[in-house]
């Protein structure tokens, strides 16, 4: 199993395509950092709106490394599924397209094992992508913008508000958030893998995975009450942003943030279970389909 995993990883990392994802992430992060370094104030003005009429806020302090990472993740974690799909949805179909799948499947390795190894390899790729994101979006931002308390701008139902998390209470939240993101992105891995089983070229399943994710994400963010109540809970994309839950700090009875707390851990836990359920479902479907599949490519 370990040998097979090594082989799969070797394949992933020998391909130039793999590095597109890393390059894309780096580029996006650098653009964000550059933009905020030179014009973060206008973003802050937008977010703070009329609060500045009543309060004096040091915006240069508000735009710090922690805040930057949050803003970057906010955008990136919507795009990263595409990058993950690029690799995951290609795993089987890409081999089918290249013609290597039939050769691989004449080797004394069970299809289940092979699929699991491919899943694991894509998962490791995803984790590497997240680690890279942590390095450039978090640690590089901290280096450029420094450490300070973080403001979280949040809309909940009809309410908008700002949470302030003290700087000594943030790092663990990022670790938790990246961990959560790894689970969330693994759903995309499993979905991509499942679609990959049915296709004989990589474009189909990649496009299909991306379309499903985009479509569901759009529906998840429509903010139409009927959809929010009846459809949203059933879309896995609604749970992809659950990492933010770690930044929704708990409040005491007088609305003061409680250090080290999370507002709604049960909701995050539930989201994690739902995501794990999706992974399990997609992966089992992929295994069942792959075992039965006639290799005609």
């Amino acid at each position: 199993m370990f040998t097979l995993l090594q082989i799969e990883l070797h394949k992933i990392y020998s391909r130039p395509r793999t590095y597109i994802a890393f390059a894309a992430i780096t580029a996006i992060v650098l653009i964000f950092q550059f933009a905020f370094k030179y014009d973060g104030q206008s973003y802050m003005d937008l977010m703070l709106q009329n609060i500045q009429d009543n309060f004096e806020i040091d915006k240069s302090k508000a735009i710090n490394g922690y805040f930057m990472c949050y803003i970057i993740l906010n955008t990136l974690l919507i795009q990263v599924p595409i990058l993950v799909a690029l690799v995951a949805a290609d795993t089987i179909s890409g081999e089918a397209n290249m013609g290597t799948l039939r050769l691989m499947l004449t080797k004394p390795v069970s299809r289940t094992q092979l699929l699991l190894v491919k899943f694991l390899a894509s998962f490791i790729f995803t984790v590497c992508l997240l680690i890279w994101m942590a390095i450039v979006a978090l640690f590089l931002s901290l280096l450029i913008f420094g450490q300070e308390d973080m403001l979280v701008f949040r809309v909940k139902g009809e309410e908008s508000f700002i949470l302030q998390i003290t700087k000594d209470d943030i790092m663990w939240r990022y670790f938790a958030a990246f961990g959560y993101a790894a689970i969330a992105l693994t759903v995309i891995v499993a979905l991509g893998l499942l679609l990959s089983v049915f296709a004989e070229n990589s474009i189909g399943p990649i496009v299909a995975t991306v379309c499903i994710v985009l479509f569901f994400t759009i529906v998840s963010n429509m903010n139409i009450p009927v959809i929010d109540r009846n459809v949203k809970p059933y879309l896995f994309t609604s749970y992809l942003v659950g990492w933010k839950g770690f930044f929704y700090i708990g409040l005491d009875s007088s609305d003061q943030p409680i250090k080290g707390s999370i507002e709604n851990w049960p909701a995050i836990k539930k989201s994690i279970y739902i995501l794990l359920g999706h992974i399990g479902f997609f992966l089992s479907m992929a295994i069942i389909s792959f075992r039965k599949k006639d290799i005609l490519s």
């Binding site: 977010m47 009429d53 949040r154 809309v155 309410e159 700002i162 949203k232 709604n264 989201s271």
Partner: peptide
């Protein structure tokens, strides 16, 4: 002191809806 309403446009924050009910209608 008096404060003005603070309202961010919906969708700008891509918030995680944890399904909990909001405290009180504004």
């Amino acid at each position: 002191f008096n404060t003005k309403d603070y309202k961010l446009p919906k969708g700008i924050t891509f918030d995680f809806d944890d399904g909990s009910t909001q405290k009180s209608a504004a």
